[in-house]
Amino acid sequence: MLFSVFKIRTYFNLIYDDVSIWCIVFDCCFSTGAWEQDYKAYAGNIISQYNETYPESSITILDFRDGEKVSRITSALSDYDIMIMDYPRHYEGCPLLSMEVIHHFVKSTESWLSVAQENILIMHSELGGWPVLAFMVAALSLYRKNVAVETKALDMIYKQAPNDLLPMMSPMNPLPSQLRYLQYVSRRNADSEWPPAGKALTLDCVIMRMITDFDGKGGCCPVFRIYGRDPLLHIDKTPKLLFSTPRRRKNIRYYNQVRRP
């Protein structure tokens, strides 16, 4: 059984080719502000309800948190015998995770759900973590072959949240990158290596559909930076600055919105 995040907001049933996955979405996942209620009391009450309803079940919680400090869910459930696995809330500022982490996530969750029908998997996120949680639920659905189309997997999760929530939580549109990473998951059987090895990236162009008005005249002078692994150092996986627009004035162009007739 698969559940998602904390303080009940709504129930929804995801049906993929006659396979149902029941999810429970909680309010704090959709919140961008401070949590006003007694989090420990509420989280403990939810776990107690699960234990009473499913006495034979075992619970594992996957927590998408930011930073290294102890998360709220870990502190709130410290008195319970529950395994909590921590995952990051973003990768280099984008609400998705690296392929190595995605691989660990889908393998471990699939194993947990397959061990026993009674096992319960709860996915929880800190404030602002809804985009990466939605992405990871979609990745798990593709990995388990509950759905075969990446856009369908992502849309069925995202539509459970208010339409204006994603722009409030992410300064960039994460959907193109999330769909590209979901394609890696859905095509895993076609690849000889999983997760796929890193490949050199060739950037031909950058398309800016919306130009930020920094100067009051409808335009700006953007500086691009590209981060990634050093292609010459295969052991070191730490992202490094691979390219940056030179700061010399003659190299920085001015862009503004195209005026349409």
Rank of each mutant, 00 (worst) to 15 (best):
E193R: 12
G228Q: 07
C221G: 03
R248K: 15
W130S: 03
Q178P: 06
A138G: 03
A34P: 05
I235L: 10
P55C: 06
S170T: 05
N163I: 03
D191V: 10
S58P: 01
D38G: 00
V101W: 03
F12A: 01
L203C: 13
Y158E: 09
F135E: 05
D81Y: 01
Y143M: 05
F135R: 00
R72V: 10
S177N: 14
L175D: 05
L96E: 08
D17A: 04
M172S: 10
E110H: 14
I59R: 02
M172P: 00
L62H: 09
V19W: 10
K7S: 10
V206L: 06
L233T: 12
N146G: 11
P222W: 11
G198W: 14
V115T: 08
I47W: 05
P167A: 13
I8A: 10
V115E: 09
A43I: 07
D66V: 08
L127R: 13
K159W: 03
K7I: 08
A153H: 02
Y143E: 07
I235A: 14
V137E: 06
L97D: 05
R180P: 06
D215F: 07
V132F: 00
I8H: 08
F12W: 00
K199M: 03
L182T: 02
T60I: 13
R260L: 11
E150K: 08
I252R: 14
E36Y: 06
I47L: 01
C220Q: 09
V147E: 02
G198H: 03
V70N: 10
T10S: 11
I8S: 15
Q37Y: 15
Q117T: 11
N256S: 15
Y54R: 02
M208L: 15
H124F: 11
N189Q: 11
R89L: 14
M85E: 12
I207L: 07
V19Y: 05
R249A: 15
F12K: 03
R9D: 11
R225L: 03
T245I: 05
D236W: 10
P55D: 00
V106W: 01
R180D: 13
